[in-house]
Amino acid sequence: MKRIIAGSLILFLVAFVYIFERSYAKKLDYKVSELDNRLKKVERENNRLKSEIDSILSIEKMHKIAEEKKLKRAGEKSIVRLNK
């Protein structure tokens, strides 16, 4: 009787561990998926903002702003070149 009870307990423990492991793996699946979705969102937003920055800093726009503000091109003597 004691052996039967001990055996059943062991069997129960094994089954419990197996089910727990499967359940935990599924939870991790959810977590990974959630993190991946968040990463994708952040990457997309990052790309979109980079593109916006590039557009704002376009040479054509900079030039227009310089002309509107009546900025003048620096003369040769005004430029000080620093060695790298």
């Binding site: 997309r44 790309n47 979109r48 980079k50 593109s51 590039d54």
Partner: peptide, 10 residues
């Protein structure tokens, strides 16, 4: 390295 063309998800 300045961007001429890029792809953005819209």
């Amino acid at each position: 390295g300045r961007v001429f063309a890029t792809s953005v998800r819209r």
